[in-house]
């Protein structure tokens, strides 16, 4: 009797601790969103979203930065999604599971922990200089793509691992080739999971400053990029400048908060997309 009440008490205390921890995290998030929303909400207007900055970026909007972030994210996706998925398919379905593949996997995990500024410098060396792509949307997008790749590979491999072997064996036993089995009986069920992880990686990339700072993002451009070899403005870099480098920081504070709000909405939007994909997948599996 005594012991069971004690056990219950311990359990109640444990639950309480977990709830408090969860509540704290949530409170910080809500506070953070509220603060940005309150301070940035006022700056948001159609003009802010659709016009270029004016008068030394003390007025006007962030349209070029939105376009730049969009374009660079597209390049990132074009590099990271196909390459990441293919690598994952190779690693999980074709490669022999031995020391070498374990080493490759370990390296990939480690790459996803490399600070983004290191990717930025690497991008300068490889894309900007060695491949002579210059500071451009292409260089920046490819740099972000490289940075995202370890995430997409890992997420895609995890997605492939959730597909039971019985789907593969069942198909092979009916006379499917290995690729047929993968294409028709593994990928259709793995792709949504792969996309979920990939989109989360893209959302992270879209918010990065360091990798694009030296590879293509510009301080200020009065015009929109005309080709992929042009420089561009990007939301995170614009925000960085407005918040720390501008000559009239106090004056442009509201614009900085507005930019932050747009960036957050964009990243949250991408994350929501991932959630929706995952939700759809779960429902379909049932």
């Amino acid at each position: 009797m005594r012991r069971s009440t004690r056990k219950k008490l311990v359990q109640a205390a444990g639950f309480l601790a977990l709830r408090v921890a969860m509540g704290l995290v949530l409170a910080v998030l809500v506070l953070f969103l509220y603060d940005i929303g309150r301070k940035g909400g006022g700056a948001i207007s159609w003009e802010f979203l659709s016009q270029a900055p004016r008068r030394g970026m003390t007025e006007g909007g962030i349209f070029p930065a939105i376009v730049g972030t969009f374009l660079v994210t597209v390049i990132t996706a074009l590099l990271a999604i196909p390459l990441g998925m293919c690598s994952a398919i190779y690693l999980n379905e074709y490669a022999r599971q031995n020391r070498l593949t374990r080493l490759i996997r370990l390296s990939i995990r480690n790459l996803s922990g490399v600070p983004s500024i290191v990717y930025g410098l690497f991008g300068v060396i490889l894309f900007v200089n060695a491949l002579r792509l210059g500071t451009s949307i292409l260089s920046a997008g490819l740099t972000l793509g490289l940075m995202t790749l370890p995430w997409t590979i890992t997420a895609s491999e995890e997605a492939l691992k959730t597909i039971p072997d019985s789907y593969r064996e069942g198909a092979l036993a009916l006379g499917a080739t290995k690729w047929q089995a993968i294409r028709t009986n593994v990928l259709p069920y793995a792709v949504p999971g792969m996309l979920t992880g990939t989109v989360l990686g893209l959302a992270r990339a879209a918010g990065e400053t360091a990798p694009i700072m030296f590879t293509g993002a510009a301080f200020y451009l009065p015009y929109l990029p005309k080709s992929l070899s042009d420089q561009f403005m990007a939301l995170p870099y614009h925000l960085y400048i407005m918040a720390t480098q501008h000559h009239a920081i106090q004056q442009v504070r509201p614009l900085a908060y507005g930019t932050a709000l747009v960036l957050i909405v964009l990243v949250l939007g991408l994350n929501m997309t991932a959630v929706v994909i995952r939700y759809r997948l779960r429902r379909k599996r049932r």
């Binding site: 019985s166 789907y167 069942g170 198909a171 006379g175 499917a176 047929q180 028709t184 599996r285």
Partner: peptide, 21 residues
Amino acid sequence: FQKPNPFPKSIFDNIAYGLRI
């Protein structure tokens, strides 16, 4: 196999699978 391993497709598509591949 030992454990029934239908594919997560319709009944029809399960049977048709071997034919189609």
